[in-house]
């Protein structure tokens, strides 16, 4: 994986809106953004209603994912071009799902909605009609998904990368600062995790920094290239963004996203937690 295979520019996207075999997909938590105007031809995926199981605390399973893509008119052969708001957090999260369920060709638009907006590119309110397909999802690739027991065992052993803001890492804030701070879980971070906020990987316009800059950021933060890596945040979407950087742009092997993230870890009974700006001891 590399920048050439995993990423397209907004300019490329605009020039390829009508190219056969491409499906543009906007992924957001707040889908009113899509409803107010989106990239022409793009279908939408709602992070909450489409990608989460409505009952169990988990995301959609293999059958649910296949049903979703079939209903949206996406086939296994299509090249899926993802973008969204929040600096592509949810688009990166969906990208991770597409990889998890074995979709071959999937890419992100560098900068997502923000870059599109700042470039003053065209939006439409027209919702495309796509014929239903019979999408077949593969069994989940658990090489890219971490679960809690594995995370606890990784303390002091693997690279743990906390991609939340420094104040969330230290335990001074419990959630991103656009959300109320009253939360049920404990504050802090997983001991021995290094702090590399997701935002370090992005330019102000939402595009990714260059491979050289990215490699330098993680190197200086203490990421050990010889070890396996697990990225986490609060609910797993900001860490999808960093997972994308490490695995898809920088080509690191064995990078997992811990989607349970701090909402799960910070609620577990008995697990160790570190407070303050330092990684802490195992």
């Amino acid at each position: 994986m590399s920048r050439d295979t995993a990423l397209v520019s907004a300019e490329w996207a605009e020039q390829n809106l009508d190219t056969p075999g491409l499906v543009f997909v906007e992924v957001d938590e707040d889908t009113t953004a899509y409803d107010g105007g989106h990239i022409p031809g793009a279908v939408k995926i709602d992070w909450k209603t489409d990608l989460q199981d409505p009952v169990r605390r988990d995301f959609v399973n293999q059958e649910q994912f296949a049903a979703l893509l079939s209903e949206r008119g996406i086939s296994n052969d299509d090249t899926v071009i993802l973008y969204g708001g929040n600096n592509n957090w949810f688009a990166a999260y969906a990208y991770w799902y597409f990889k998890l369920y074995g979709h071959e060709q999937v890419k992100l638009i560098d900068g997502g909605r923000k870059k599109w907006e700042l470039d003053a590119r065209v939006y439409t309110k027209d919702v495309p009609v796509r014929e239903k397909t019979s999408y077949v999802a593969k069994a989940p690739d658990l090489e890219i998904r971490a679960f809690r027991d594995e995370v606890v065992e990784a303390i002091g052993v693997k690279n743990l990368v906390d991609v939340r803001s420094p104040d969330e890492f230290a335990g001074r804030l419990l959630a991103p600062a656009h959300l109320p701070q009253e939360q049920s879980q404990r504050a802090g971070h997983i001991p021995t995790a290094i702090s590399v906020p997701w935002s370090k990987a992005a330019n102000e316009d939402g595009t990714f920094k260059s491979d050289e800059e990215l490699a330098k950021i993680y190197g200086e933060a203490g990421l050990d290239g010889s070890k396996d890596t697990i990225a986490y945040c609060r609910i797993g979407e900001r860490s999808s963004h960093s997972w994308f950087v490490l695995k898809e742009l920088l080509g690191h092997e064995n990078v997992k996203n811990y989607d349970g993230s701090w909402t799960e870890y910070g609620s577990l009974i008995g697990v160790p937690i570190a407070l303050g700006d330092e990684p802490g001891k195992a």
């Binding site: 938590e29 707040d30 209603t49 489409d50 929040n86 609910i235």
Partner: peptide, 25 residues
């Protein structure tokens, strides 16, 4: 547009920003 999942709250609130013009909850 139909969806395989019904529109119910999930266990963890998302990280996206809520409606900025809404009154404080």
């Amino acid at each position: 547009m139909t969806s395989p999942a019904t529109n119910v709250a999930t266990s963890a609130a998302g990280c996206a920003a809520p409606d900025q013009s809404a009154p404080l909850p």
